Amino acid sequence: MNSKLKQLIDDFIQHEVLSGTSLVMTIFGDSIYHRGGVISLASLIQLMDVFGFNERSVRTAVFRLVQNGWLSSEKIGRTSYYRVTESSRQRFTTADQKIYSFQHSEWDQKWDLVLLSSVEIENKLNLKKELEWLGFANIASNVMAYPGCDQQKLQHLLLNHNMTEQVVVFRAETLDLWQESYPTIKRMVSTNWPIEELHQRYEKFISTFREFFYLVENEDFDPVQAFQIRILLIHQYRRILLKDPNLPFELLPSNWPSLIARNLSTNLYQAVFHRGDEFFLEYARTAEGGMPPAHPQFYKRFGGLKQLEMMA
């Protein structure tokens, strides 16, 4: 075991506020979802142990995820198994695309506006959260906006929530009626989206995981450490990306660090991926035995990963 890397990992786990529930979600999304989406509780306890979580905290975490509809549980004999629910599969897929696939298109100067004035109060908060998941922000009373959203995803969201008769969707365009309008637009964006907070979080992420990358690039490390780094990397990156509305670069500060974070994540993930999988596959079990082969989409992450298990 690499002692320098061990110290860095231990320090990170000790000083970061890690939620057991959130970390279980990261392990499901990163390692389990594309391999059938089910794992034994005993396996999950072993995997979480390397992050300092005991059996009781893991049981509490999966109980909460079942209560919130993310996972379902079943017992076969004396062994409990946890599975991704059908209702949460789309969320896992959306998060997977956002984390592992880079998608950023040139802005067409258009804005998508969703008017919520006809939405019943009890549904409004939930719909706002779902729109924020797509990157929308509340720019005025009952008006959510995004500069050039994925209209197919928006349509799917509104149909899923039976909101087609309660909201009105508009398309607006930025008019260049005077010179130098971008500073005004950027101020509006920074007021309504968490630009400064995201910038700080990206900078901290880059500073932290550059140290990890330097060590894995220059020194040897074992499968346990590879798994720890891989999960901690995705856990922290996921937490930033799910807050990042992925706004057009034209509306962001010139020193916006998301591409640096993306390149760092790509390089570090590819460096630890296979050794991390060795550890995961050694301990992860389903009712049929070992984990099934991963879905082909799994190997398209961060530009492509070699399918070593398929070559064995």
Rank of each mutant, 00 (worst) to 15 (best):
N162I: 02
V189Y: 04
E173M: 14
L175A: 12
K204R: 07
S190R: 15
Y202T: 02
K204T: 08
E197G: 09
S181M: 14
V169W: 05
V169T: 09
I185W: 10
K204Y: 03
I185E: 03
T191E: 15
W193G: 06
N192Y: 11
Q200R: 12
P183V: 02
T191N: 10
E196I: 14
Q200V: 03
V169Q: 01
L198G: 10
F205M: 04
W178E: 08
Q179G: 12
E165Q: 13
P183I: 05
T184E: 09
T174R: 14
K204H: 08
E180K: 10
A172P: 01
P183A: 02
Y182L: 15
T174I: 07
Q166I: 01
K204G: 01
L198R: 10
I185A: 06
P183M: 02
Q166L: 06
T184V: 12
E165V: 05
Y202E: 01
Y182F: 14
A172V: 02
E173K: 15
E197I: 11
L175I: 13
F170N: 07
L177E: 12
M188K: 04
P194K: 09
V189N: 00
T184W: 09
F205D: 00
I185Q: 06
D176N: 14
Q200L: 06
V167E: 01
Q200H: 08
T174A: 09
L198Q: 08
Q166G: 05
T184G: 04
Y202G: 01
E165M: 08
E203A: 14
T191K: 15
S181F: 11
E180D: 10
T184M: 07
L198N: 04
V168F: 09
T191W: 08
R187P: 00
R201S: 09
A172R: 05
M163S: 13
F205P: 00
P183Y: 02
V189I: 13
Y182H: 04
N162F: 07
A172F: 00
M163T: 02
N192T: 03
N162K: 13
H199L: 10
D176L: 12
I195H: 03
V167W: 00
W178K: 09
V169R: 01
P183C: 01
R201K: 11
A172W: 01
S181I: 14
Q179C: 04
